[in-house]
Design a protein around this nucleic acid. Structure first.
Length: 257
DNA sequence: ATACATGTTGGAGC
DNA sequence: GGCTCCAACATGTA
């Protein structure tokens, strides 16, 4: 389910619980539930794919990983990893990672790296990218320290949108293209968010899971690319492989097929 | 029905 | 010590 926008939506759905106090906590998470009981929720935030329930001197971090789900005032036919009772309300989180930290999240997270944050910094992302010219573009987009919140679907769609072939390294991209990559990583993430809210995400996919390129109508490629080896859909015709820049020291990229 | 997928981590091995 | 690789986790769907 969850890339950044889905967690952002979850955060929004949970805002009514801010300033409320946790009546009880339970579940099969490896957690000291006593520490949650009686805590007042000061804020509910997100950083990329992390949901943060913030207390006075602590926070709970929930990561839905690949299969995580949740219910608000509803239950699934499954054991919840975490149940929070808040007065007569109930939050249930399933198959996710839940951890309790006795720290201030502002000391832990760099919100400038979150593509959906009000403090998202394209400039810092650009700087991080330029410092790693050997980095494959797929790996770059999935790097949560550079593009927190971007997941595999967003990766595929962004590269298709900006017509960049997934086998490029960052160092091979012309400067305007790197800037466009940063810009579209955030832009597409917000589009994803709008479509997700109205349950119309899949119908807007251009290349992800597609067998045919919607632009030139030739067969699309599916391949596992980069050190992350994630499923990558692309059009070998529309998406350009750039020539290595002189003196960049980056590896030569062969055009496949 | 077996395999695979919107993700991350911790530990093994080098 | 540090880097890389892979198993592990867990569920819904084709």
């Amino acid at each position: 389910m969850p890339e950044g926008p889905s967690i952002y939506i979850l955060k929004e759905e949970l805002q009514p619980f801010v300033k409320k106090t946790i009546t009880s906590a339970s579940g099969y998470a490896d957690l000291d539930f006593k520490k949650l009981k009686g805590q007042k929720i000061l804020s509910i935030e997100s950083w990329g794919k992390h949901l943060l329930i913030v207390f006075k001197k602590a926070y709970v971090r929930i990561h839905l990983l690949m299969f995580g789900t949740y219910r608000i005032n509803e239950r699934k036919e499954a054991n919840p990893k975490l149940t929070l009772k808040i007065g007569k309300d109930e939050l249930n989180f399933y198959t996710c990672s839940v951890k309790y930290f006795e720290e201030d999240p502002t000391n832990v997270y760099d919100f400038d790296a979150d593509v959906m944050s009000t403090t998202w910094s394209p400039r810092k992302a650009l700087k991080k990218l330029r410092s790693q010219p050997q980095l494959n573009v797929c790996d770059a987009l999935l790097d949560q320290q550079i593009f927190s919140g971007v997941g595999n679907i967003i990766k595929n769609e962004v590269l298709f949108r900006i017509r960049v072939h997934p086998k490029n390294t960052i160092g091979n991209l012309p400067d305007p293209t790197i800037k466009n990559l940063v810009k579209e990583a955030a832009n597409y993430t917000w589009d994803f968010y709008e479509w997700k809210k109205i349950n119309q995400l899949k119908k807007h996919w251009l290349i992800h899971t597609k067998k045919i390129c919607p632009r030139c109508h030739i067969p699309a490629f599916k391949e596992y690319i980069g050190k992350t080896k994630r499923r990558t859909f692309y059009c070998d015709n529309c998406q350009i492989i750039f020539k290595p820049k002189k003196g960049s020291g980056s590896a030569v990229v062969k055009k496949n097929n």
